[in-house]
């Protein structure tokens, strides 16, 4: 890697890191806005989420002497869970190719690692909820179950990648998809992206009322970042050509231009997927029905993706064998 491309990769990493934190509440706000518009209720402004986070950050914990034991304990667990959750999701976001595919962390961006890190972040996010009274705790556990039902589908998706590129490294898979593959185009990956979108549906991103102050802000930001990273992953599979490619031969200015185009396309992609997800809120179902729907949708989509992949794989192999046979025949006829 030449120095200019290394510089570009470093810039990409830093800009991506900042962009995820800055854009996540905006995208979340956009989704709330769209789902409110689609269901016909008054829509909150886009910046409301950021406003709430800043307000929470500037609010102190109650320091009255009569603070109940419950609040204090919620404070202890939230003070560990909130930074941990945000740190985990930011670690995961550093591994996902957002706008360009040649990140510094490209060697470490394994599909299993990224998706399971996101799930860890989701579980950690719910810890303060599990610490409260029965109603909140039950809802929190239900949300954890809702996050966990997606794991079997993730393993099936990994099989998909492995069949395509013989690796689960996201960077290699995405670059393989960009170059075009023999095996039935990217149709299976579109289905996989649908399954990932099912994972991205977070039930509620509001933390429990007992947590306040900077911890509450961090929990809100972590929820938004988790949503955004799932969306980014799905968008990568849907439209891998929009990822900027940094080449060592091109000039630094050209690379930087490619990076910023990549960021523009990233935000566009996320906005479109937000509208898709917001239309999903039109489906009326109870919490259990929603989880069931999500699990079944993800499972069916990933199974269908594997089926499509194998059928195209087989037809491609058959074509290849036929071509080989033909060339062999002409070769044997010629002399």
């Amino acid at each position: 890697m030449s120095s200019s491309s290394f510089f570009c990769a470093l810039t990409l990493f830093v800009v991506q890191f900042g962009a995820v934190v800055l854009v996540a509440p905006l995208i979340s706000g956009f989704r709330t806005f769209m789902s409110a518009r689609l269901t016909g209720v008054a829509a909150p402004p886009l910046l409301r989420r950021w406003y709430l986070i800043v307000i929470c950050c500037r609010t102190a914990w109650p320091l009255r002497p009569d603070t109940g034991l419950l609040t204090r304990r919620a404070g202890v667990i939230a003070s560990i869970a909130a930074p941990a959750s945000l740190a985990i999701v930011l670690t995961a976001s550093a591994l996902v190719p957002t706008a360009g595919s040649d990140l510094i962390t490209a060697h470490w961006s394994d599909f299993f690692v990224i998706t399971l890190l996101l799930l860890v972040a989701q579980f950690t996010c719910r810890l303060p909820a599990l610490n409260s009274l029965a109603e909140t705790a039950t809802r929190g556990f239900q949300q954890s179950v809702s996050a966990a039902v997606i794991i079997p589908s993730l393993f099936l998706m990994a099989a998909l990648f492995f069949c395509m590129s013989a690796t689960t490294n996201l960077d290699i898979v995405l670059s393989g998809m960009r170059n075009g593959s023999d095996f039935g185009g990217n149709a299976p990956f579109v289905l996989a992206a649908g399954a990932l979108l099912a994972a991205a549906v977070l039930e509620s991103s509001d933390p429990v009322p007992e947590v306040c102050g900077a911890d509450r802000a961090m929990l809100m930001l972590a929820c938004d970042c988790i949503f955004l990273v799932w969306l980014t992953l799905a968008g990568d599979f849907l439209w891998p050509d929009t990822l900027a490619l940094i080449s060592g031969h091109a000039s630094a200015a050209r690379n930087l231009g490619a990076i910023f185009t990549g960021f523009f396309f990233w935000m566009l992609r996320c906005a479109i997927l937000c509208i898709v997800l917001a239309s999903g809120s039109l489906i009326v179902a109870g919490p259990a029905g929603r989880i069931r729907l999500k699990a079944v949708a993800a499972l069916l989509l990933s199974l269908f993706a594997i089926q499509v992949l194998f059928s195209s794989h087989l037809s491609a192999t058959a074509e290849w064998a036929e071509r080989r046979q033909q060339t062999h025949n002409t070769g044997s006829d010629a002399p």
Binding site: T59, G213, A214
Partner: peptide, 18 residues
């Protein structure tokens, strides 16, 4: 993040409304 959190705690003034 821990550093930022501590910073935010030292800066923040207003208590939540009861």
């Amino acid at each position: 993040l821990s550093f930022l959190r501590r910073k935010a705690a030292s800066v923040s003034r207003s208590a939540p409304r009861t």
